[in-house]
Nucleic acid binder design. Sequence first.
RNA 1: GCCCUGGUAGCUUAAUGGACAGAGCAACGGCCUUCUAAGCCGCAGGUUGCAGGUUCGAAUCCUGUCCAGGGCGCCA
Length: 599
Amino acid sequence: MLPLFTFGLVMFETEKKRIEERIQETFLQNEIPIPEDWGWAPIPFAGEWGISTSFFKVAAQEARAGKQINIGQRAQEIAALVANHLGLPEGFSRVEAVKAYMNLYFSSAEYSRRVVDTVLTEQDQFGNGVSKGERVMVEYSQPNTHKAFHVGHLRSAILGDVVCRILEAAGYNVVRANYYGDIGLHVIRWLWNYMRHHMDEPPPDRDVTRWMGDLYAEATRRLEEDPDLEAEVRTIYTRWDQDDPEVVALWEKTRQWSLRGFDDMYAVLDIPFERLYSNSEAEKPGKKFVQELIEKGIALDERPNGPVIVKIDEQLGLKKEKYRVLVILRSDGTALYATEDLALAKIKFSEYPDLVKSVYVVDVRQSLHFQQVFKTLELAGYDWATRCVHLPYEIVNLPGNVTMASREGTVVLLEDLIREATARAREIVEQKNPSLSEADKNTIARQVALGAIKYPMVARENTKVATFDWETALDFEGQAAPYIQYAHVRANSILRKLEHALPVVNAPVYELSPAEVELIDLISRIPGEIQRAAAEYKTLHITNLAYQTAKAFSDFYNQCPVLSAEEDIRTFRLQLVAATRQALANLLALLGISAPEVM
RNA sequence: GCCCUGGUAGCUUAAUGGACAGAGCAACGGCCUUCUAAGCCGCAGGUUGCAGGUUCGAAUCCUGUCCAGGGCGCCA
């Protein structure tokens, strides 16, 4: 059963209900069984606007019940029967039964005005669902301190941010969470290198994250050259574990440097967080929790000869291996990611007991890990464990399917990407709009660059590997964010030329052209697509719709003159342009991309 | 060995089990004294990896197989 909100039909709920009742009457009168599942779809022909349904399922049901029929023919018969009985409902201009489908074409006058008026009334709220009164937490980004922030880290940050924006628009109360990897062997290696070779060196004013990453790479190099030095690293780890004041103080100070660098980057990217967690804070609760699991008999303590483990499949009585074995504490008693993840989930639900979902935006390589963690929590008796969701995404690779690695020096740093993209966008603004002020040119360049960077991260299936290459990243044409921004700019440009205020209500509606119908149709789908995207955690539905709407507007722009049109047409077109500008701005906002006025 | 993803035009990709598989890039040919050409139009380009099956109907579901990537008790 398809949810009713699918395909933006939310705007026409009342009409649809009435029609469904009439269809049921037809079925009863003709002794046709009423099908279990019923679905409406938009009419898929460009420039045609309306709703459509098919009767294959009903006919197939009759065939299964023993009737000797040709399903295709019978379905068409039923479609014709229903269409006849239905007549022409109010608000529709045409009803047809064709190829077993019944197509109901909207009467453009009434519906187009309704769509345009709704957008212009609701403005930046257009598309948003009513509050669901439910809270959802989304954890995303999860950068490691003392390391660089590269393009590969971008997907979680941007995907998570956009998922949050979509959930908020859909009517959820969203808690945006980050989870810093601020302790672990990588951090200690960094500290070791700093203490031995850079003690008291201050971080640079700019590009702190790059510098942190450089020192980390240096540490790795030194340790590779002389593996014996690992002993020194382990000594520092022990000192940290035992709360040695010198090590802890240095750790806290340097950790702040990374966090400051991340804050700067999140500010540039316009990616906010509400609750910050770190694995250092989950470490001690994690160890305590492991102890509880041992006492409950869920975990098996093999120390000192082995680690603490949970034999999940055995606990569940599974014959085939599925969840396998999860190691939750090292044999030397130090914590693992799993230790901390168990505790963190508990912390989240004790802070927000009403979470209906706790989402983890983490790359796909950790799928098994999260299944294990969630299942272990379930075994421990926490009913909220089933509300934990791993939202996996594929990683960002370099051309040739090469994974970025700091050690290989193949990483593309976020700072560099933003700088390059902005410079490129700046050149183009200079060509297109030389008369703008320097400040405006810079702002626009920044908006275009960030849009171009963000869009490809959310405009593909989460489960598909993204490939980063400079050429594509710096291409501002075609199916990309600048195309959508440009459509917004053009709409704005028409409206700016108005001498008087936009006429607000009851613009007369004339016989609309296909380009106009297409545009209105797409705008009307926004509320439904937001719900669908939220239900499936799929940003792709929004990028698709944003691109299609921009494309429809470009068609309209080319085919339908606005300012030079005669009075009646002009009035409605102006409203349509205003509605489109609003719709595009709202869609871009959902993607965390700014909508420039000029570019 | 077991498990999870993906495989659609030269490249990047879209498509709720449904009406002719839709775009962008690249190539080629057009369109700026007309609301910004970061645009538009045209032209091409596909046995949806392969083989079976389910279904009235399969890119989509199932089975097998090939290719690519990933995961699998003390990495994160």
